[in-house]
Design a protein around this nucleic acid. Structure first.
Lengths: 253, 253
DNA sequence: CATTTAGAGTTCACTAAATGGAATTGTTTT
DNA sequence: AAAACAATTCCATTTAGTGAACTCTAAATG
């Protein structure tokens, strides 16, 4: 909206994705007036944009006339995640084979991290994060690993825009604590999520420095198995995998 | 493009999704000139649209300057599939529990079907279709079940635009055969994919008549287990599930 | 290693398309 | 039948698209 001035963006394109995001934020379904209120756009404009999206299959109109995300988006999202995660999959798999715990890859998308690749442990008690799922940056291993690669101003902007929910007692709840932890992450070269996201789950994570979009990988599991001894075994393997992926993404994406 | 005349669509919105689809079709990555050739749009226009998409996070620009689908699309697609599949999941799960074979839900998206919900069998030999995956309509159970609910003109348009590949010897290869099969499907009330998509896999499928977007569910597995006797047990359960889902989607989406 | 050169990225002035306020017409829900 | 919301129309104003020419950058060539 206001961005169009500074970035040379196309107004109707920015608006159309704004509308899709509003529908997403409303739990996947919005009425016209709801969209008008939240987007602060005039009604005829919204309707015209929605008509286009409906025609193209990216929005469905429900029988009660409200609008929902359409099947076309599934296809685009699936292709995007395939492309992002395809190269990473075997590398993540190798980590799982070496360490016996689930491995993930996540990227920064706006102000949150989105999981784009995953390999599961075969243990019956394991962590499981679906590809496509989003998470806060400040309370996840991958999120903190990513934040540690960004300039402080951007960290502040990202975290303050989303707030700092504390899902567990160990979660970082203040900007001060977070910035201090990020400094430690930069020093040691990897991030630790020690039951900050979920009680009983510990995670070691490392950023891919050369990736064009800020990206990180992690290995996570129950604290009973993922202890500090595990960390000592995990870190070199994570580093190896991160370097390999980083080199690839620097070239190809 | 030409649609804008007939539908009152917004040109730049149609074009932007055109570009995303071209990137998708090119395997997830396209150069500017590639996009120019395939979209037949002038260069400055494409560049402006892409700049907007990159700014919004729906396209990433790779170090070699070509463009790829961005992480923002994963989020939209994930939300879309969650919304579409969320209600269906427990119903599909019930089918799996009752019949021991994988169950799927798929919708028509343009000229193909896209899988939007899934529950897996726990057997080691089982069918597995990822949510988001697309398939031809004429050679899948869900596709045929959906086609059988559409007017013949639309069936012809969909199938002729995609062609009729025959992945197995049992696949339907001519419009005549397909239309005859659709007639049988309408008579008996469900579709059978008898090794038409993949050798050794049989599938029973049923459309959700009230769904706003043409939608179908199916149960599928190896022919050794999914035989005609299995079909007799499956059909009433499928019908029950289809009615339940259909009633829900008629109201909510 | 300097020089082509191909393609990306940009500029500009003009034409085409999109926008949005006010008012109008449908369509449900109450 | 009224109220509430959705859908649409009109058209002056704003924004986007385009063809031609230009700059910039990276990598292939000699």
């Amino acid at each position: 909206m206001t961005e169009s001035k500074t970035t040379g963006g196309v107004q109707s394109v920015e608006r159309v994705f704004d509308l899709l995001n509003i529908i997403t934020a409303s739990g996947g379904e919005s009425s016209l007036s709801e969209l008008a209120a939240k987007s602060e756009l005039p009604l005829p404009t919204i309707h015209r944009l929605l008509r286009t999206l409906v025609f193209l299959g990216y929005v469905r109109q429900l029988p009660n006339r409200s609008y929902a995300l359409g099947p076309g988006l599934i296809r685009l999202g699936y292709t995007a995640s395939l492309q992002l995660g395809a190269y990473a999959q075997p590398v993540l798999r190798r980590i799982v084979d070496q360490l016996g715990e689930s491995a993930n890859m996540a990227m920064l998308d706006g102000h949150m991290v989105v999981y784009v690749g995953q390999a599961q442990s075969s243990q019956s008690m394991r962590t499981f994060t679906e590809v496509g799922r989003r998470a806060h940056a400040h309370d996840t291993g991958v999120g903190k690993a990513i934040l540690a690669t960004l300039p402080e101003s951007q960290v502040v902007s990202i975290v303050s825009s989303m707030g700092m929910p504390t899902p567990t007692k160990k979660s970082l709840g203040t900007m001060e604590d977070l910035l201090a932890d990020l400094e430690k992450i930069r020093e040691r070269g990897y991030a630790i999520d020690d039951e900050e996201q979920e009680v009983g789950v510990r995670c070691f994570s490392m950023a891919l420095p050369e990736a064009p979009t800020p990206t990180a990988i992690s290995v996570s599991g129950p604290v009973s198995r993922v202890d500090w001894d595990f960390g000592e075994r995990a870190v070199p393997l994570l580093r190896e995998a991160a370097d390999e992926l980083s080199a690839h993404f620097a070239q190809v994406g």
